[in-house]
Simulated assay, not measured.
Amino acid sequence: MQYFNTAGYRDNLARASGRTFDYRTPLSDGSWDAWRADFRAALRERLGLNRIGTVPVGLNPRRTESVECDGYTREKWYVTSEPGVEIPFYLLLPGTGEGPYPLVITPHGHGARGKETYVANYASEEDRTSNEQGERDVAVQAVKEGYAVIAPDVRGFYEMGGEEEWLKSDGKGNSCVNFQKVALMYGRTLIGERVHDMGRLIDYAATRPEIDTSRIVMTGNSGGGTVTLFAAALDDRISVAVPGSYVCTFEKSIIPIGHCPCNIVPGILELGEMYDVAALIAPRPLLIVHGIHDEIYPIEGTRETYGHLRNVYAAMDAESSCELYEGSGGHRYYKERVWPFVRTHLRR
């Protein structure tokens, strides 16, 4: 029996596909601003962002809960993203210090409980132990650093998941497959929809006098790292980007390794590799956080992307604004370097 030559097929595609927006071209010929504008427009089209939010709709914010926690207040809110779609999120505000506070937005990864994990609202002691070992209480970390925090559910998870998938999985699954299928049929993508939602949350933050929207950080792990990277690449309102356990190369991670379909952007490699996308963030501060034993985003690809980004930031005389922090474990969040990096660059 003969099997399909998968490796040869992939190699052939890679050889035949030139990247239209290879970052090295504008660095060498001085066309960076035009490259950036054209690449962003093309990327928005591939993500389907031009088909999202086309019907004007108000934010329609509504608060459903306010809880006093240890040193901070946690409010639960909903805002409208597009007709018929609300984004549920927690707003955490420090109990000390003076506002307006810098804002940290914390999109979560592929955990069934979504935002609840990031605000340390655990389902059980077992859930607490597992997530604390992975340092996934990211929103709590941020508010205790003195920042306002928006911790949303991303599409496909928890309150932004579909009822059918939730019931079938006994509350342990997600709606990524079904939502991505529907999105693709209409020329959209889940990544694009999630990026759009982050923009709506920033719009809401701008209505809050307690929040300084001139200083916005975005950080999340795994799927949250995906949202962070793409949102920061397309939205200059994000001042500092800290993607965790995602940054690699498409050819070393998304293509050869089994991933959730929500990672797919049709034709992305015709435009650029992951480091080309990440280059759109420059010269804004970018900290890549990654475990050396991450099995689904191999560290070799992470180092390759970081090497390219160092070239970009060096060309912009901004080398100190781009870092790679390598954690000693696997696919998880690593907070050790995150908050010192954020503190330093928000001061600047």
Rank of each mutant, 00 (worst) to 15 (best):
Y122A: 12
V242F: 05
V265G: 06
R303K: 09
G162L: 15
V138E: 02
A241W: 05
I268H: 12
G58A: 12
A148T: 00
R113S: 13
R128M: 09
T219M: 03
V154H: 06
Y118E: 07
G18K: 14
A278K: 14
W35P: 00
R303E: 07
A41T: 08
Q180P: 10
V67D: 11
G156F: 09
L92W: 05
P88D: 13
N263L: 13
A120V: 12
G267V: 11
R303W: 09
A232F: 07
P298Y: 05
G18Q: 08
G48T: 08
Y297V: 15
P266C: 12
N131M: 07
P100C: 14
M218D: 00
E159F: 14
K168N: 15
V182M: 12
K181I: 09
I292E: 10
G199Q: 04
V79D: 03
M1R: 06
V79E: 13
T64S: 13
A232Y: 04
T305R: 00
P285E: 07
A232E: 00
K168L: 13
V177I: 15
R51D: 05
T189G: 14
I216R: 00
I202P: 10
V247S: 11
G192M: 10
G307D: 02
S253A: 15
C322L: 11
K76D: 10
E300F: 12
G18W: 13
P243I: 09
G53T: 13
L184N: 11
S321R: 12
R24E: 14
H293E: 05
L184H: 06
G146N: 01
K172H: 08
M316Y: 01
Y118P: 00
T226M: 15
E126M: 12
R74A: 15
S328T: 13
R310D: 01
G307M: 07
Y101F: 15
